[in-house]
């Protein structure tokens, strides 16, 4: 249990997917203008991440490794993630139109989100078991949501301010992300060995 808590807290704060591992940068820069859309994006990513972690765990351990086909990892993972996103989209549209309206537009973006693929590739490398993999995925998703919501909050404030034109858009977002990454580095001392 302690181990799981450590994985979770470590992934949310210390090894934050966006701010320390550079995974999921595209949506982080692209979908962080408003807090509520950022939050929905975060939820959609967390959901797909957890699903992807489970599915790719089975593919890796019960298909690729027994058959000696580990070199097909990249091809099979990306295909599975793409179809998973499609399935989730169809499922949500049928079962929960409300949720679909909230998350639906983000789903196509998620296929090429390196946070999902990165998560799937990191799980075998870290040697996590099934439960640890799920906790890791949840931590990654929560960490992503935290980072993107914080950034959206800052950018909402920034809209009002008078800024040199050259800094608008990508430039200032990246610089703020840098400051945020610096702040997150401080967590490393809190959750150590």
């Amino acid at each position: 249990m302690e181990n799981l808590l450590l994985i979770f807290a470590g992934t949310v704060l210390v090894n934050n997917f966006v701010l320390a591992q550079f995974l999921g940068i595209c949506p982080y820069l692209g979908v962080s203008r408003q807090v509520d859309t950022a939050f929905s994006m975060g939820m959609a990513v967390t959901f797909v991440m957890t699903m992807a972690a489970m599915v790719t765990f089975f593919i890796q351990n019960y298909l690729l490794i027994p058959l000696g086909l580990e070199y097909l990892q990249t091809v099979s993972f990306i295909l599975v993630i793409a179809s998973l996103v499609q399935l989730v989209e169809i499922f949500l549209r049928k079962v929960s139109p409300v949720l679909y309206r909230a998350l639906g537009i983000f789903l196509p973006l998620i296929t090429t989100n390196c946070a999902i693929m990165g998560l799937a590739l990191l799980i075998p490398r870290e040697g996590y078991n099934f439960i640890e993999a799920i906790v890791f995925a949840l931590g990654a998703g929560v960490g992503f949501t935290l980072a993107i919501v914080l950034m959206a909050g800052l950018r909402e404030q920034l809209e009002m301010s008078d800024m040199p034109q050259a800094l608008r858009g990508g430039a200032i977002t990246l610089i703020m992300a840098g400051l945020m990454a610096m702040a997150f580095m401080g967590f490393a001392g809190v959750i150590g060995t």
Binding site: A171, L174, I175, G178
Partner: peptide, 13 residues
């Protein structure tokens, strides 16, 4: 990591 964000941000600006 912070250096990556900040230097790219400054170059972009």
């Amino acid at each position: 990591p912070p250096g990556a964000f900040i230097s790219l941000g400054v170059i972009l600006a």
